[in-house]
Amino acid sequence: MSKPIDLRGAAEPHQLHPAEKPGVLVKAGAGPVLQATRIAKWFGDNHVLRGASITVWPGETVCILGRSGSGKSTFLRSLNFLEDPTDGRVEIDGVVVNADPFHTEGKDRAERIRELRMRAGMVFQEFNLFPHLSVIGNCIEAPILVKGMARKEAEAIAEKYLEKVGLLDKRDEYPSRLSGGQRQRVAIARALTMQPKVLLFDEPTSALDPTLVGEVLKVMADLAHEGRTMIVVTHEMDFAHEAADRVYYMDQGEFVEVGPPEQVIDAPQDQRTRDFLARFRTLGTKK
């Protein structure tokens, strides 16, 4: 067996982008809750991520924009190691996992990744609710199994969040009987019931009927305004404009533009960002 190789991203300290400054809801003096440092990913010969870094402070909402195929979903999935990055380092709430492509199967590493995931709730494009469990069952399964929480306690927390997403009356329904928008709201409540430090949204409205997008975005905007920490990969420009503290524009596996939405969306500096947003305008988005 060869010695572990010192990887560039893991070896070098995290650096802030000049535009990365704590957002308005961040308490004074609070340190970042999530740092992803120079995340790189190769799929075979395909260089999908080319050393993308992000810093998120507690209470912030950041949005990641980019064309499809730019690597933004892969980046988000690297943050909780659903994709194992080839290089780089992720730190969430003090838990650090380095990319280690030569040793992906160790037990200690699996355990550390699990610790990381418990701090990062994820909401998927395709909802991925558990069809064999009721709404409440979906929410309490992980807290009971993973955190060893008592059923009563888990149910109380889940009910609180189901109420927040407006679906407490669907508590005992099965996912198959819910609309797409309701399913995604349950998925948000499920993620919240684990009481994570940060929520990751992977294009949460892309699989929805257009008439159902609004109810999900409203829940997300409410969460953003009450100071949840959120990283949202999305094509919803209005949401990014309204809710984000910062917007990251990704192109070919790199963040080519970072800044407040008024800058990145309304007055993009980078040509690639401009081209992307111009396409959106032709599709009829007003902002």
């Binding site: 990062a120 709730g121 994820m122």
Partner: peptide, 8 residues
């Protein structure tokens, strides 16, 4: 993925 993302 949903299950392991929840920490299972």
């Amino acid at each position: 993925e949903a299950a392991v993302a929840l920490g299972m």
